[in-house]
């Protein structure tokens, strides 16, 4: 879906990355979805009166700005692409502002409660502007398409720095799309294996499947198996017994 600068009315075709660096005409950084084809919105953009009132609606700003990373469509994760689908399928994109904003994982940790995602978001975004006048959401969008190395002077690394911490803080929330590290990948693999079966599965007498990770991880040591599915285990010294000297 095309976007339009809320300041000067410049229209960006669907999927354009141009807006990620701000409006080339006026430098504005607030955009809104435009319904219809690019031609339609281009015609509409010729009349500034159509776009001016939109600039006065603060609710549009966080929506369209946060939608920027979705429009790149290149590095978006599965989680981040789904909100984009929600917003594009909305019959009235100008009113469907909150869901994309709340679900956007790249919004640099701004409060994402949908109940507060109206006028306060616009103020928040203004207060979070960087020295270059770029909002954190826009910075995040930029970092999605180019690496920090390519932007030595750009603020994204600063504005993004809280994100990893926040990912760790909220790692207990399964719905939180966190940055996947190598260890997290290993943990996930381990968890998947653990979910399959605990440590030793008796398929039938004399046939066993073993979960090596679980056998390695567990404190107690399985000494012998019973065909009824029971284990005999050695209880570690620390379990209720005196600690060895």
């Amino acid at each position: 879906m095309p976007h339009q600068c809320t300041n000067c009315g410049h229209v960006f075709p669907d999927g354009s990355k141009e807006m990620l660096s701000g409006c080339p005409d006026c430098g504005g950084n607030k955009f809104q979805f435009k319904q219809g084809s690019v031609d339609d919105v281009t015609d509409a953009a010729d009349d500034p009166s159509d776009s001016q009132p939109a600039a006065d609606r603060p609710a549009d700003s966080p929506d369209t700005t946060s939608a920027a990373p979705e429009s790149t469509g290149e590095t978006a994760t599965g989680e981040s692409s789904s909100p984009a689908a929600d917003s594009t399928s909305s019959p009235d994109p100008q009113t469907a502002d909150s869901p994309p904003t709340t679900a956007d994982p790249g919004s640099t940790g701004e409060p994402t409660d949908s109940s507060t995602a109206d006028a306060s978001d616009a103020e928040l975004m203004d207060s979070n502007r960087t020295q270059d006048g770029e909002s954190p959401a826009q910075s995040t969008a930029r970092s999605d398409v180019v690496s920090d190395d390519e932007l030595p002077d750009a603020p994204p690394s600063e504005s993004q720095s809280p994100t990893p911490d926040e990912s760790r803080d909220s790692s207990t929330d399964p719905d939180t799309p966190a940055d996947e590290t190598a260890s997290a990948g290993l943990d996930q693999l381990r968890q998947e294996l653990n979910d399959q079966f605990e440590s030793i599965r008796i398929v039938s007498p004399g046939q066993y499947e073993l979960n090596l990770m679980e056998l390695y991880d567990r404190n107690e040591y399985i000494i012998s198996l019973r065909e009824d599915g029971r284990y005999v285990i050695e209880v570690p010294d620390g379990w209720g017994a005196d600690e060895p000297n």
Binding site: S199, Y208, I222, I223
Partner: peptide, 20 residues
Amino acid sequence: AIRRSREATEGVAEAMHWLR
């Protein structure tokens, strides 16, 4: 063979325990 299989499974558990 069934007994060996059970003992072998216990052996794997023991090997993993030693590794830890």
